[in-house]
């Protein structure tokens, strides 16, 4: 598997990352290099091997259904470029 300049532009757009033409040219071989390594890993026979999700045996912990957070509107809105009447205010998005 490999990527071309069009694919790089597409995934950059999906990730909302601005890339110049120059950067795209540089990213194509870089990404292809990484994909090459992954393909190399794919050559290892892992038949019958359970995928490992953590390096130590560990289980997803759950918490009880209790309200322990919230009511921190000022903190939540503090970094917003614009906030009005307790809302984040963003450039109008209309579908």
């Amino acid at each position: 598997m490999s990527v071309d300049t069009a694919t790089v532009r597409h995934i950059a757009k999906l990730a909302r990352i601005a890339v110049t033409d120059h950067e795209v040219e540089a990213l194509v071989p870089e990404l292809n290099n990484i994909l090459g390594w992954i393909e190399q890993l794919g050559e290892v026979d892992v038949t019958g091997v359970e995928p490992m999700t953590a390096v130590i045996p560990n289980q997803l912990r759950m918490r009880p259904d209790e309200i322990t957070d919230g009511n921190v509107r000022d903190a939540v809105l503090k970094n917003a470029p614009v906030a009005e009447h307790g809302f984040f205010a963003v450039p109008k998005v209309i579908e």
């Binding site: 939540v76 009005e84 009447h85 809302f87 984040f88 205010a89 109008k92 998005v93 209309i94």
Partner: peptide
């Protein structure tokens, strides 16, 4: 939740 009708040029966001 997005509200589009509260301001002429902003959409308001309630999380």
């Amino acid at each position: 939740k997005l509200m589009h009708d509260q301001h002429p040029s902003f959409s308001y966001v309630d999380l």
